[in-house]
Each structure stands twice: as structure tokens, then as C-alpha cells.
Design a protein around this nucleic acid. Structure first.
Lengths: 162, 162
DNA sequence: TGTGAAAGAAAGTCCAT
DNA sequence: ATGGACTTTCTTTCACA
């Protein structure tokens, strides 16, 4: 929206650094990208306003917060008409433990990521959803572990090794 | 590992705030959770060292960086022996556009999230992988859009409305 | 857009509680 | 573990190239 549409080389480096460490000091960031702090601060703000930086947030350890179980869920609805889809999205929006939901194509209509304190709790969450109107099929994929979690590759910028 | 194992109420509020805004000032954060800056800073550091805060990073707009296409991929291997699994994980680790990979159970062995500049590029990435040894079956689910993306619910703490 | 300087604000340290 | 007072360091504004 607001701000530069074209990201220049310095912008890309700023994005790369902020993706690595979102709490980096403007000073340090400026030094790393080769400018001084004032224009660096302006660029960061522009990148935020323009939406290139969507958010800067802490990623928490879900287990430490009592969520021991994560499951991906594929959901197929009875129909793909707008009212049915919107009703489903509204139902999902109301359940705090369905953290993410993507509209997909392929062999299902939605992909969900769901967390729960334990397997029994997860089972009950999913049973409730299987009972929703217009839900034709649910397949769930319990997460055994994370094999990879990499940052978005920034064109022309290998992540700085700290 | 290091630090308090038990998160107290103030810790939970800190986590909640940092999940909302990872660049919040220590001062502001301290005021929100009802303590002064010095102990607040110590708590944040402890939470980071202990791993409760895994990272604080910028979430970038993938489209603005030239990745127009996202796909989830379910992969089933020929066998689930350790060498086969580890070889697959190593292959995934080497491909920058496979951002996330989860080891799962259910009807497949891995779930991947893959990004690409366009559909043709994505097609080629996936074709390469279908050709890998020990890959029995690939099902892909192109992402049409994000329906929901919510923070992890912190027990006893409704997210602060800014 | 960029820089340097200066005011203002925040982070980080120390110590008493 | 906390909070007050202090020192150091950073952020932010401004004038100007």
C-alpha cells in the first residue's frame, strides 16, 4: 500500500536481518546493511507500513506452554459454495486451538494446524469438528517432530552467520 | 534448560505480549505486566535462554519477495527405517524453498511447506522430489489463501487488544 | 536518500531490600 | 526476585548535502 513498491538491495538486507533477529538494534542493523541509523529506521518503518514486514513476533515453545500435541488436518467439505466455505471459516475462527487454517485446492478444501495439551484433548477437538454440518471428510496427521524450519530465502542474500 | 522451569503468571503475560509485538520496549512491556524494567529484562532473557521464547523474528510478506505460490506436500516413503528417513531429511534440508518439514504419522511420513515464484517453478521442484529414491507417493495441496493465523493461546491470558 | 550532531529515551548495571 | 538510582548506549529528530 504505502511506501516503495520496489525493494532495493538495502531493503532486502534489512528484511533478511530482521527475519534472523527481529529485536536487532537499529544501530546494529544499519551497520550491517551499510547505512547510518536514521535512514535505516525510516526504511524499517516504510517496510512495516507497506506490509513487506507483516509482523515481528516471538515464536514460543508450544510444549512449554502446555501444548504437547500438534496435528495437521485436511478437511473436505460437502460443497465448495461460498456460504458453506464462509460458514466453515467462521467456525474455525472461533476455536483458539486451531491456530492456522489455509484454503487449499487438491484433494481437500482446508488445511489446519491444531494444538492441544494431550492426545485425548486433541481427539475431542477433532470429533467435534467431524460433526459439523457440511464436513464430508477429515484426515489428520499428528506431528511427530519438526525436521526443518527455515527462513524465507531472500533473493541475493545468504543469511548472515550471526 | 537454563532458567526457571515453571512459568509464573508474569512470565505468561510477557510471552503473550512478545507474541503480539516482538519489538515492544522493555519499559512498555514491564508496565503492561506490572513490574519495573530491570526484572522484566531479566525475565525476557531467561525466557530466551530457557527456550520458552524460541526466537523473535520478522514475518515477511512472501509475495513481496517474489514467492507467489505456496504448496503443502504430503510425502510417503517406501520405508520408515532410520536411514531412509534421515536421507530424506537431508535432501529436504538442502532445498531452500522447502521452508518447513514435519515428521508426521497417519497416511504419510512427512508434511512440507514449499514456496516458489510461480506455478511452473513449483511444478519442477516437486517433480524433482518425486524422482528421489524411496519416495513412494506425493500429494500436493496448493494454497489458495490464508483463512486464519492466530497466536498460541496463553493459558489464562486473553491477548491484549493493543 | 543520505549524513552528522544533539536531545531525548531506553537499556543495562549495581546494590539494598 | 524486585525496584530505585545510576551510567551507558541507542533512538529519533533536525539541519543540511
Amino acid at each position: 500500500m504505502t511506501g516503495r513498491q520496489q525493494l532495493d538491495d538495502i531493503d532486502l538486507r534489512i528484511l533478511s536481518e530482521l527475519q534472523r533477529d527481529g529485536r536487532i538494534r537499529i544501530n546494529e542493523l544499519a551497520a550491517r546493511v551499510g547505512i547510518t541509523a536514521p535512514p535505516c529506521l525510516r526504511r524499517v518503518r516504510t517496510l512495516q507500513r507497506s506490509g513487506a514486514i507483516r509482523a515481528i513476533r516471538a515464536a514460543l515453545d508450544e510444549r512449554r506452554l502446555g501444548y504437547e500435541v500438534t496435528t495437521f488436518v485436511l478437511i473436505q467439505l460437502e460443497s465448495q459454495t461460498l456460504p458453506v466455505i464462509e460458514a466453515f471459516e467462521a467456525a474455525i475462527a472461533a476455536v483458539p486451538r486451531f491456530l492456522q487454517c489455509w484454503r487449499i485446492s487438491g484433494d481437500a478444501d482446508f488445511m489446519l494446524r491444531c494444538v492441544a495439551p494431550d492426545v485425548e484433548d486433541m481427539r475431542q477437538q477433532l470429533l467435534q469438528f467431524a460433526a459439523l454440518p457440511n464436513v464430508r471428510k477429515i484426515r489428520s496427521f499428528p506431528v511427530l517432530g519438526v525436521s526443518k524450519d527455515a527462513p524465507l530465502p531472500i533473493p541475493g542474500h545468504r543469511p548472515t552467520p550471526d
